[in-house]
Design a protein around this nucleic acid. Structure first.
Lengths: 208, 208, 208, 208
DNA sequence: CATGAATGAGATTTCATTCAT
DNA sequence: AATGAATGAAATCTCATTCAT
């Protein structure tokens, strides 16, 4: 094999590292806009300001680039969330902080949803990994709160997926679909809902 | 122009209607397995047991077929849900029935998720339409319950998206990811969560 | 063979004759607009207000229809020209009458040029036949005039092609390219040119 | 967008220029033999000894290649003619030289007629351009001769198209239709005709 | 006589990947 | 380390023709 396989761990000069990162950054844009299949290496290299052939110096093929991009995004998101909840004491404060951090991340990486949704078709494993790692971390936190008696005794995994679903759909609706001014209110509403459920005694009080 | 564009409303003989439906059914399978881009007309027609050229007698192109498929699935899902909640009296009964009906639908149409997630890239409009129509119907139901004092006073749209998110992620986790025996318990848990929130007084009682 | 070959001489009912003629008329329009290859049987049958399959009741295939159309146009043109010059006594009167008749025919059958030019690619024989029959008739007339001492002694075929070329290009320029008001003057000019050549003594006189 | 559109002005390496020219040369052969529609990119690339995909590195599509080919042929023909008449002093010498040069060009580019006649269907603009530029140059020459009193006072455009028609039809008859031995005599005849018209006094004298 | 659904061969076009420079 | 011309497999789409009704 002439072109040796190029893993992310391969030793690179600093010029090489820069070129490689340009390709990953361009990929986030292009995959997000067009989707995996409709994205061409030609466009990615153009946006990265490198020649077409240069791509294959750093990645084995289009698939490998995509997989690495998804893994990277997942890692950054998990770090962001874990940083955000650190220091919060009550469960509700943690939820509020986590939701806010997620919405902020989704607002900055507006292609996150589109890339993750594509992932299912490109590489089942990286897509499962993305959600399972998020859910596992979430469930660990919930379990701890339950053990401290702060929460009812639920199955932490069920609640983790439920809360991830809430965040995902509110992010889709109020971050991506362009009405960010409603976002703050939605956060308040949903934290209230999380706290007390649909009957929300706190609110029922408002209307005697 | 020569082969006239063929909208779903075009008058067809019964033989024609049958052929057309074979194509739509095959499309649900193939799009679900491979995704829109990786699906070929050749494979769709093979699975539908018609010749390649026959496809273009009934659909203008792959895009038009996909759009119609998504619209059809959305319509069927909404009908299924509205039928399921009809007759239930309390909000919680409606939620439980709706969740169960959704999970059942997703179990039968195991490609639903994959198709809807692709929709975003194929046709923004049909994808928005799918979620907005679902959300609108859901919000209408919630609003009615609020007005009857059965629920706290939330923004119905926010809660509709939150509940859709819960259903979506639990369906992904417990219907698609192959552990259906856990599903019934997950439904119970989540209805409890919806009812009382994370603190779930009903359960806290259980453990003195 | 199930569909028996259908020559123009086949016995037809009057309804059949009408349908067949509708197809030929539609073909003149469609072949003229789009060219042979880009014309579809579907469009020809639509313009003829008959069903697609009906075409093959009257013609063996697209090629046969085109060949018959060219032959018919050539025949009509030759008849038109021979009628036009009949009764004229001098050669110049004949030329003038012939040119006018040709321009009139080209004005009525605005697709004549386009169809004949396509013919070369569709069927070499029918295209050669079209020009050779025209040239032969023209040459016969010129030869007779020469024998009566009305003309110089040229090779009649050379002059026939030269005069056909003049007619063809003036028709292209002044009939098809949309400036019909200049046509009458062009006819006068060219008859003068034909009569006396480029030095045109008649005109030289005008400017002493 | 991905494969950027490739205009003739794009900067190419010398290898690229060679490949591009091979394609144009092959196109002259194939379009001439089969006509535009019946010519396939596959055949053009085979005759040019390049791979199919290489075509799209240099031309946007078949249409663009054809248009460039016609424009190139027109340019070469006009240059050939203008060179041929340069240095001739009398109008008749110019005509004789021009006719001979045209016949020679048509003999060398035996596909010229077939390509130009197809042009009408492929791209109206390039076809009009071809004839109008030829006619304009011709008319300019005629006008100059008229102003020097060498010719009668005709409309130069009318006479230009008439003479082009003569050249075209004689070329068709005596260059393309395979009897080149008659060509020289035809040139003599037609120059005589151009000089004195159909009555041709010079010849009438010959036969008392 | 007339119909129109069905066919499948063949064309155009795209683009991931290779490799010589 | 970087380049970009060249490749060819694979996809979409068209349409002349057939045939059962």
């Amino acid at each position: 094999m002439n072109q040796p396989s190029t893993s992310p761990t391969k030793q690179l000069t600093s010029r090489g590292r820069r070129t490689r990162q340009q390709l990953l950054d361009a990929a986030e844009l292009v995959f997000g806009e067009k989707g995996f299949e409709a994205s061409s290496i030609a466009e990615i290299t153009q946006r990265a300001n490198v020649a077409l052939g240069t791509f294959y110096v750093y990645f084995e093929n289009k698939h490998a680039l995509f997989v690495e991009l998804v893994a990277q995004l997942g890692e950054r998101l998990r770090k962001t969330l874990s940083t955000a909840v650190k220091g919060k004491t009550t469960r509700l404060e943690k939820e509020r902080a986590g939701f806010r951090a997620f919405f902020e991340f989704a607002g900055k990486h507006r292609n996150l949803y589109r890339i993750v949704r594509q992932a299912e078709f490109v590489d089942e494993a990286v897509y499962l990994d993305y959600y399972r790692k998020l859910a596992a971390a979430y469930a660990r936190g919930l379990k701890a709160s339950m053990e401290q008696g702060e929460l009812g005794r639920f199955d932490p995994e069920v609640i983790a997926y439920a809360l991830m679903g809430i965040a995902d759909f509110l992010g889709m609706r109020f971050v991506l679909w362009n009405e960010p001014e409603q976002l703050e209110r939605a956060v308040d509403e949903v934290v209230e809902f999380i706290a007390h459920g649909l009957r929300s005694p706190a609110r029922l009080k408002e209307r005697p």
